[in-house]
Nucleic acid binder design. Structure first.
Lengths: 304, 304
DNA sequence: AACCTTAATTAGTATTTCCGATTATAGTAA
DNA sequence: TTACTATAATCGGAAATACTAATTAAGGTT
């Protein structure tokens, strides 16, 4: 069996990939340029393949180089996790925790969550990143995030999850439009093109359409919004109706508007919120505890 | 950030865990006992915690030590995979492949599979281990196996899978017992205690009972067998009936007996066969290809 | 009591890693 | 053209590390 590549050299490769420049990468690693350079060469020799194509002045990662970077990132992440886990003696709810959250949850969760955690677990350093489901799953996979808060169902791509609770959808529209409607609202009472949704990148769109049984797409306005706050503004301007999760309403997203929230059609007109983590994690206990915290902040907690 | 533990020291720890003896572990690593000893101490210092409890004469892994071993195993496995992946230039269907298979599939799959692979992919070194679903999943998780052939559904514990096909169950009994039965066989026509099954460790038992809608447990004989071949022997001795998968019948498990295979009750009286692998693998292409090979050998292939 | 086995320790050696300086190459500005 | 800048590779020596053999210490066995 040939010798394993060293973690140090793998980290050099990652830095080089990130900075795309030997000097800056070396600086980031606190080593000299020559050290990093020979580290990479060493790695190429051990792996028996070319990782970067050089042309005296510059370089480019090969396909294999990119692949190796991906895997090296996972290996280094696991090792860092092991180090942290051991150093903290397996204590839960301590140290840095990088949490990813989708944009239709984050603004309504982050505030109360951080406040609560600061009181109960001051040693936990919560670091939050807001992005789409797909991007977050990628970052989780690569070890750039530790745990995600997503709306389910979603293809977990081999990750594991705790179900935290449900978040009902409400059909939100201007007071003046709601006068002659009965709950749950039948969509055929609404004019065509009168329902506004988020861009398709947001999983909320699909979840809302499915959960609220909005099969009739002629009701959906092709113009999409980029945030719940935009949707609220559009509805308040009497452009039409929209779906807003209860969570956002509880946090006062409708305050100062003339909007009303009505019950939409749908057996279970709600989305499920889950906490997602790598199956190889060593921080399950922390995640479990975190899950309980977050569940408490949901309209319909299912945990604990 | 403190320094990462070296892979070398982690491998020393693994060896020590495996051999439970410094000298033998050192030998296995091709280093001296003192090297290994100080390597472990080094590791403990870096991780800032005790991994083994020593009492001048012997030692014992601490709880944390066991945890670290588990994770170290994963890290080393990933790194070895990276090394192999790079060295083989990402070529598929080459090199060693450690496949785990459950006992109710292995005897009927391994023969034709290895024969076929030797012809089409002679550079693939197939290494097969037969064990129960639970044990195989554990070995997969720990990197001691690369890929599993299991009967589904089963809790994949975060692993991923390809569905390969279906394998129908047949109700097998002695000719003389089958005379006045109609297919699909109604179980109430059978005497009590007349159906023999495998030990509960075998997932086939549960799958067969569910798929063939055998709710009436008074029909099940409490005496269990340890292999399909035993079941066949018992049925041939007119002790009763049993469920045998089509795959085994196709491979001639009933040859030389006076048994007949009847269609049991059940909408879809069959089990699903799947190929299971770690979500972090870098050999998806190989597994995909292997999946196609195995699917061809199933009674009802679903792949390709 | 003598001997064996165990893991830790020590001191010296070998190896590896790293740095600083230099080189080679290409692009850019005067 | 001629400097000047920026890039990555190379080289020689210094520092750090890893390794070994021999020894020690302690418990168990004969």
């Amino acid at each position: 069996m040939s010798k394993l590549p060293s973690l140090k050299n793998l980290s050099y490769l990652l830095a080089l990939h990130q900075h795309q420049n030997f000097n800056r990468a070396a600086q980031a690693c606190n080593v000299s340029q020559s050290t990093l350079s020979s580290g990479i060469q060493n790695l190429e020799e051990q792996l028996g393949c070319q990782l970067i194509e050089r042309d005296h002045k510059s370089f480019l990662f090969t396909g294999m180089g990119e692949e190796v970077v991906e895997q090296a990132r996972r290996i280094l992440t696991s090792t860092e996790e092991l180090l942290y886990f051991a150093q903290s003696q397996g204590k839960i709810m301590e140290g840095p925790l990088r949490l990813g959250c989708i944009p239709t949850i984050a603004p309504f969760l982050v505030g109360p969550l951080t406040k609560q955690l600061q009181v109960d677990h001051p040693k936990l350093q919560l670091n939050i990143r807001e992005d789409t489901t797909d991007n977050l799953l990628h970052l989780l996979r690569n070890g750039e995030l530790d745990v995600l808060v997503l709306a389910l169902p979603v293809d977990l791509q081999g990750n594991q999850s705790y179900v935290l609770g449900r978040d009902p959808f409400k059909l939100v529209m201007h007071q003046s439009m709601a006068d002659n409607l009965h709950e749950p609202v039948q969509y055929n009472q609404l004019p065509d093109n009168s329902i506004f949704l988020l861009e398709k990148e947001h999983c909320l769109t699909g979840h809302a359409v499915a959960a609220c049984e909005l099969a009739d797409s002629t009701k959906i306005n092709p113009f999409t919004a980029t945030s719940l706050h935009s949707l609220v503004q559009m509805a308040d301007a009497r452009l039409g109706a929209t779906f807003i999760p209860q969570m956002a309403i509880d946090r006062g997203i409708l305050n100062g508007t003339d909007l009303v929230a009505l019950q939409p059609t749908g057996q279970q007109a709600s989305r499920e919120i889950g906490l997602v983590y790598r199956p190889t994690t060593n921080r399950r206990q922390t995640f479990r505890r975190l899950a309980e915290f977050i569940a408490q902040l949901l309209p319909e907690p299912l945990l604990k």
